[in-house]
């Protein structure tokens, strides 16, 4: 069968036409979205673009956090936009005031936490709202692209809590192996492999989202007095079960041979390291010898 050249040409022309129309439509819609923030967009294009993708883009605009006036449009350098009550970049402590104008309950919880406590007592690197949630690109925690999505939360916490220099700069005593030890737990494995409708525990499920506290704090969710309630929370483990084991979760418990200082876990590991090395070399050695013995087998018999 032969396809006439004329109909191919027609098709190409129609396709090009459709393409141009679509292109035009998309360009205009993008334009009208940006128009609202035209004065900021001149210079801060990345920030504005990030902001337009965020969960806040429908409710608030630049001036709600940064001050200034957006009514002046179109000028290349929008000085006026910055002249009225313009605040620029809010400080790490001041950001809580901005967030609390809408999220007052959450900010109150956060101000109860060890993070806020450290931030106000001179540790400038302690996390504030935007260290976890991002500044312009804030997304709902239910959004899989969000950094606060439950699957990504362990990495988010580990960004600081795995960093030895950061942890030591603040004060001694924070372990940096928390993410690694969490990785060994069933909770992490189940999440990674898509378990039970994705309801397994990540960091904030035990340590709380905003009012994270030190273990020794009696109000802390991981204080030994509150541990059973924490495990029972959201119906994860019944109180009966939680009572059976109300100990430290991250720390492995060593079992020593009676009357010695020999760790049974290390002993098992040494034994199996030797066994596996022996087995691998034995198996492959025999396979290699078997192949070698088959070479020129006819000459031998």
């Amino acid at each position: 069968m032969k396809i006439p050249i004329k109909s191919i040409r027609k098709m190409i022309i129609i396709l090009l036409f459709i393409f141009f129309i679509m292109n035009n439509l998309m360009m205009t819609s993008a334009k009208s979205e940006i128009e609202r923030d035209i004065s900021c967009f001149h210079c801060h294009s990345t920030e504005v673009e990030q902001f337009q993708m965020s969960v806040h883009s429908t409710n608030i605009s630049c001036i709600d956090c940064h001050g200034g006036d957006m009514t002046v449009k179109g000028s290349l350098v929008s000085i006026d936009a910055m002249s009225r009550n313009f605040t620029g970049i809010p400080s790490r402590t001041n950001i809580t005031n901005l967030c609390s104008s809408c999220h007052s309950k959450t900010v109150d919880l956060y101000k109860d936490s060890i993070h806020w406590n450290k931030l106000t007592s001179g540790r400038e690197n302690a996390p504030s709202c935007l260290d976890c949630h991002g500044a312009h690109n804030i997304l709902s925690y239910k959004d899989p692209r969000s950094v606060t999505y439950f699957e990504k939360v362990p990495q988010l916490c580990a960004y600081c809590h795995e960093d030895q220099t950061k942890m030591q700069a603040w004060y001694y005593g924070i372990e940096t192996d928390r993410f690694d030890t969490y990785k060994n737990s069933y909770h992490y494995k189940a999440i990674k492999l898509g378990g039970k409708e994705k309801s397994f525990a990540t960091c904030p499920d035990c340590h709380e989202n905003h009012d994270t506290k030190n273990e020794s704090d009696p109000g802390s969710a991981i204080n030994s007095a509150n541990l059973v309630n924490t495990c029972e929370k959201q119906g994860c483990h019944s109180a009966q079960k939680a009572l059976i084991y109300g100990g430290k979760v991250h720390e492995g418990q060593s079992v020593y041979l009676p009357t010695t200082k020999i760790d049974l876990k290390a002993l098992v590991t040494y034994f199996y390291i030797a066994m596996i090395i022996f087995e691998l070399s034995f198996t492959f050695g025999l396979i290699a010898m078997g192949i070698y013995s088959q070479v020129d087998i006819k000459k031998r018999h």
Binding site: G252, Q253, V255, L264, K265, V268, Y272, I276, L280, T283
Partner: peptide
Amino acid sequence: PIGFVQIANLFHTWEAVLASI
């Protein structure tokens, strides 16, 4: 104690590797 359950886990993993090889 939980230490014994963790040792059971250790045995289980190692023995699985050994048996599978």
